[in-house]
Amino acid sequence: MTTLLKVDHVSKIFGGLKAVEDVSMHVETGELVALIGPNGAGKTTLFNALTGVSPATEGTVAFRVGDEMVSLDKKKPYQVAKMGIARTFQNIRLFHQLSVRENLQAAMTHRYKEGFVSSILRLPAFAKQEALANKWTDEILAKLDLTDVADVITANLPYGTQRRIEIARAVATDPQLIFLDEPAAGMNPEETADLAHLIKRLQTEFGLTVVLIEHDMSLVMSLAERIYVLEHGKLIAEGTPSEIQHNDAVINAYLGGGVHA
């Protein structure tokens, strides 16, 4: 296995508050890793630091591009995305006035080129590129069971579908690594089961490396190959699901903190 993402001693400080403190972790190519921790442990802050949304105060992050590890420090979010890291958001952030198809195609902006002149004159080159984008989109829509709603404005779709569209949109960026920020939030058990299946497919069928933030412990334990546990901004444990389930520090963090796993 090769390391896809390497996080070294990352800290994030807001004013005087250390939201994330000296976190080091690694993600191997093809893995399905989970990041768990009680509310306010700094999980989303860490995601934001890794994806350039709100850069880390200290430490470095590196990502594999080909045979090289490239530093992500000082990279803007869109540059990080172009390099092959996609993400979803805790509070769904779709392009709500656009259709599902347009949402996905917007996410492909960096994957194809339509020159200004050929777009405004509708030259054959434009048609060719549009056809390409449509082909990619159709494939993803079919795989994620979204073909029926392809031309619906996303704001008009139910919550569970919107979650799926957000994942589809992340896939549309053609990533190697995908960060999922609490994808099961607000879902009923049935929807969560479907989601678990979908996340597994992202790994097996789409060949993606997945990093998952989740509160739903049964989901995490059934899916993740490796788990990192964050508490008060610090990494307190790392290991396989069974190791984590028996880790004293983790049990303490959850039960002691009054949060039920």
């Binding site: 949304v53 869109y78 995305a81 996609a86 993400r87 958001f89 952030r93 392009f95 656009l98 917007a106």
Partner: peptide, 12 residues
């Protein structure tokens, strides 16, 4: 529609 999400999917 959402500048943060747009940036997250590679749009400058």
């Amino acid at each position: 529609d959402d500048e943060i999400a747009a940036e997250a999917v590679g749009i400058n």
